[in-house]
Design a protein around this nucleic acid. Structure first.
Lengths: 214, 214
DNA sequence: CATGTTTAGATAGTGCCGCTACCCAAGGGA
DNA sequence: TCCCTTGGGTAGCGGCACTATCTAAACATG
């Protein structure tokens, strides 16, 4: 498969594929001679993943490169590799430590994790970007005056824990060991629009059920 | 409160506030004379909401304007106003009707909604952007070869329905009638980072629980 | 062998978006 | 009086994801 064919099968323009090659998002094809390179199914698969991350997940190109670097790092064990890949995924803005709302938000998140018994997350607390972005998001809501304490968040967290269980169940049944990290990244990034859509559909449905169409 | 004070209290530069005023995201202040306008708490609150939508929710400026237009439209009833506001919120790319994956995805989503009994959503099926973006997201996953059928999605949808119930419960207890639409928008947009963070934290937690730290 | 197409590789440019810097003339406080 | 701030307007900037255009080399076809 050469460049034009890769472009045809993926629906991505050759110019864009060259751009991805330049940026290191895609491994170069097997160089046949100075003007020919051969690509295979693996390239096609990876290209589709890159496209999906960028277009659906809105992940910046630089971040995609970083995430894929972790996915491909054979020197790491599965859990670490997964952690590293998710670790690199884009988060919201950093919490503003100046802001008093950040301080209370951090305390609230800590209470929440204690209440849930998520000790792994608590140990990581100051390190993990996920944890930091949670603090920042809670702080924003608090600043706008919305109630956002551990009691209110706990039932949400419990539901998301069950979502995560579904994620891992489906990962275990459907993916080979080699694919599991990639699957986990997809589930973290590509499945989010599905969840978001289901969430909003459910809001509309529930709202219509409670208040009628008016 | 004048411009500089509004800027100080919100942490947004005067230049940016002027930009928002120009773009119609913020109502002009009460004009005292040619070189002075007076702003109040309502302006501050709205500015913070705009900021949060743009920075946390990554909602494009033009879309924020549209959403706020619906929020402020007194001629509509609550449910319609809520629907209109959520309707305007940004969605992923449109489904590509050429693609066979889109066709099967649409069928799958329809089966899912039938299974769940979400008839309201089914009636809206071709109209609602939320529905369309769900189809597009499912199609993307299918194209990448991930299993994504009604059976697999149903438990996720059920969990998201319960999340939506929590949303509406908290909206009912915490917001006055006048604020409910704004609260719903916040919950749809600003609460999403919280959910996403909780989701990823839960994934890390559950992964560590199942496979250890390695 | 001539001709046209395709390729890799490089460089410069485009379009959008969220600001941001600068300028101006008109108040208003010291 | 003098200077600082204000609203209002315009032009430009920086980042990002491409995209267009070039070149020289390698085939593919008649």
């Amino acid at each position: 498969m050469r460049l034009a064919e890769l472009s045809r099968q993926s629906g991505v323009s050759t110019a864009t594929i060259k751009y991805y090659l330049r940026e290191g998002l895609l491994a170069p094809g097997r160089q046949v001679n100075a003007t020919t390179a051969e690509y295979d199914e693996e390239h096609l698969r990876r290209l589709r993943l890159v496209r999906a991350l960028i277009q659906v997940g809105k992940v910046p190109v630089a971040t995609v490169k970083e995430v894929l670097g972790h996915v491909d790092d054979d020197s790491l064990g599965r859990t670490i590799r997964l952690g590293a890949a998710l670790w690199a995924l884009p988060q919201g803005p950093e919490p503003d430590e100046e802001d008093p709302a950040t301080v209370t938000a951090r305390a609230e998140v800590d209470r929440l994790l204690a209440r849930l018994g998520w000790e792994t997350s608590r140990e990581m607390s100051t390190l993990s970007p996920v944890h930091r972005s949670l603090v920042a998001a809670v702080a924003t809501l608090k600043r706008l005056g919305y109630p956002c304490d551990a009691e209110a968040l706990a039932p949400y967290a419990e539901l998301m824990r069950r979502v995560a269980q579904l994620d891992l169940d489906s990962m275990e049944t459907h993916a080979s060991e080699a694919e599991q990290v990639e699957t986990a990244v997809s589930s973290a990034v590509l499945f989010e629009p599905v969840l978001r859509s289901l969430h909003r559909l459910a809001q509309e449905e529930e709202s219509a059920r409670r208040y009628g169409i008016e």
